[in-house]
Design a protein around this nucleic acid. Structure first.
Length: 114
DNA sequence: ATTCTGACGAGCG
DNA sequence: TCGCTCGCCAGAA
């Protein structure tokens, strides 16, 4: 017997589709998971992901401002996420923000690097 | 069944 | 531009 996918499983499936070198916002993942307007759920779901498990590229999900959303309870996570993204070729400005116009994942469209 | 816990984002002053 | 409020809800114990 197989268990039906949970809501979080669906969220993880979408996150897995984010291409290398691109990022998506929590709200965007919510919409693609048929959870429009429920961005927080995506955050809740990603909070559960084991940071060492890169099978789910959790590091590619950032907030709508292009910043890494931090969890006070995960000291050091900010550094880890930024490090992983920079290794994928994503750059941060002086304010610690990502240029979404350049790096935001655009499903259905081609993915021009610039 | 109930309580508690969290990686968001739009709107508004 | 910035900070604050408020709506949102699945999963673990």
């Amino acid at each position: 017997m197989s268990t039906n996918p949970t809501t979080y499983d669906r969220i993880y499936d979408v996150v897995r589709q984010i291409p290398l070198g691109r990022v998506a916002t929590y709200g965007q993942i919510a919409e693609l998971s048929n959870l429009a307007g429920k961005a927080r759920l995506v955050g809740y779901a990603l909070y559960r992901v084991d940071m060492q498990n890169l099978d789910i590229p959790w590091q590619r999900v950032v907030n709508a401002k292009g910043e890494i959303s931090l969890s006070p309870l995960r000291f050091g996570t900010d550094y880890l996420q930024r490090d992983l993204l920079e290794n994928e070729g994503i750059s941060f400005n002086d304010a610690g923000k990502i240029n979404l116009r350049k790096y935001l994942w655009q499903p259905h469209k081609s993915q021009p690097v610039d």
